[in-house]
Amino acid sequence: MAKKRLVFVYVLNVLAAFAVVMLHVSLDVFSPRAGGDPKWFASFFLQAAFIFAVPVFFAVSGMNLLDYRSKYDTRTFFVKRVRRVGVALLFGSAVCYLAYGLFPGDFWGAEGATLSVKGFVKGVLSNTVNDTYWFLYTIIYLYILTPLLSLAAGRKRLLEYLLACCAVSAVLLPLAAALGFDRSYLDPLFGWGAFANVALLYYVGGFYLARYVNRPEGFPVPWQASAAVYAVSTAAMALVSAASNGFVGFNAVPGAYDPYWISIASPLCMVQAASVFMGAMALEPRFSRLKGRGLSVLVALSGASLGVYLIQMPVINWIGHRLFWPGYGWLQDTVVRGLVVFAVAMALSVVWCTAWGTLKGGLRRLAAAGRR
């Protein structure tokens, strides 16, 4: 019997892709301007509202992959991952490298870019072609660990032990440092390198929440409660970050911005990401009513979401050079610009996925005809 598709996963994929775009159109938050620039505050609040993006991506990946042994062997697991993420990393890097090198005047930050095979290889190895691809390098690291992590998939207590180790090393230690505690007193005993990457917490946590928490036999959480937790955690991130950076009020902007409280290592982000993940799970009965064309569109958008991750920065940088053209003034608003970038990146990705799928289908038919 075929396993039932979980529609909330498609929804989370699209939501996470949109959230990533909103984070990247608001990067001016890292360059605060004195005097209470309203655009800076818009970016600040967007960062708080959408910082769950990559944590949710990691959580969905962990939920789907940690028990891969029930579906196929380890060799097949790695073949599938190389085909999807490895190829995507190289393809996306190549597109960015060529676009910035061939048309440096058309993209923000590409001035003076040159093309060479050696430069491309060095750029891929050092993540300097498009540094927002850091999450792809991180997910590859998680894939390397997955054959070991999968052995704990059916053992709840072992998963809880893994989560506890990650929480101590990747969340509680940075929290103690942010609160002023001298980290040198903690690192010798608790600075475990194997668990220090917070992405591992989200990766294992996504599987744990889906398997053991938000289920009838576990502790089902209504979506309204998750929505309330999201709102509270988002507001708390904004307030604590504002206070810790020394600005309270629109006329008190600091000269520098410390993003700790609005980052994926923040405990408040962990709560926010869990609320988004669990809220979507709780809405699965409603999402599962989607049929026909509506479901097909959602599946197509979900499948194209990786493409949005790959090409959003070139789109943002291309639009960046055109924000001050006559007739483009409305794009200067961060929220509207994010919507435009997401729509353009998603459209390009859907077109590519459709064309690539059609090409692969045609090649398979030709190969089948040749064997007959």
Rank of each mutant, 00 (worst) to 15 (best):
A2Y: 09
L6S: 10
F8S: 13
F8W: 15
F8N: 06
V9G: 08
V11K: 05
V11H: 12
V14N: 04
L15K: 01
V20A: 14
V20E: 00
L27E: 12
V29R: 00
P32R: 00
P32W: 01
G35M: 02
K39I: 01
W40P: 01
F41A: 09
A42C: 11
A42R: 15
S43E: 11
F44C: 06
F45R: 08
L46Q: 06
A48F: 02
V56L: 12
D67V: 01
Y72N: 14
T74G: 07
R83W: 14
V85M: 15
G86Q: 14
F91V: 10
F103Y: 09
P104H: 02
P104E: 08
D106R: 06
F107K: 04
G109H: 13
E111I: 01
A113P: 01
F120Q: 10
K122D: 12
G123K: 02
V129L: 10
V129S: 04
N130C: 10
D131R: 14
Y133V: 01
W134P: 10
W134F: 11
L136H: 05
Y141N: 09
Y141H: 11
Y143N: 05
Y143C: 05
I144C: 12
L149Q: 05
A153M: 04
L158G: 03
L162C: 11
L162R: 03
L163Q: 03
C165I: 01
V168Q: 08
S169Q: 08
S169P: 08
S169H: 02
V171R: 09
L172C: 13
L175I: 08
A176E: 09
G180Q: 13
W192Q: 04
G193T: 03
N197H: 07
V198P: 06
V198E: 13
G205W: 04
F207V: 01
L209I: 13
L209W: 07
R211I: 06
Y212S: 09
N214G: 11
P216L: 02
P216W: 07
V221E: 08
Q224G: 13
Q224C: 03
Q224I: 13
A225F: 08
A225T: 13
V229R: 03
A231L: 13
S233T: 09
L239V: 15
S244H: 12
N245Y: 02
F247V: 07
F250H: 07
N251A: 12
N251G: 15
V253F: 00
A274V: 05
G279E: 01
A280K: 02
M281H: 06
M281C: 07
L283G: 03
R289Y: 06
L290C: 13
K291G: 14
V299C: 04
G307T: 00
Q312V: 01
V315S: 12
W318M: 10
W325T: 07
P326T: 02
L331G: 03
V336D: 08
L339F: 14
L339P: 03
V340D: 11
F342Q: 00
A343R: 03
M346N: 00
A347F: 12
L348G: 15
L348Y: 05
L348Q: 06
A355T: 09
K360G: 00
R364D: 15
A369K: 14
G370T: 02
R371I: 03
R371E: 13
R372T: 11
R372V: 07
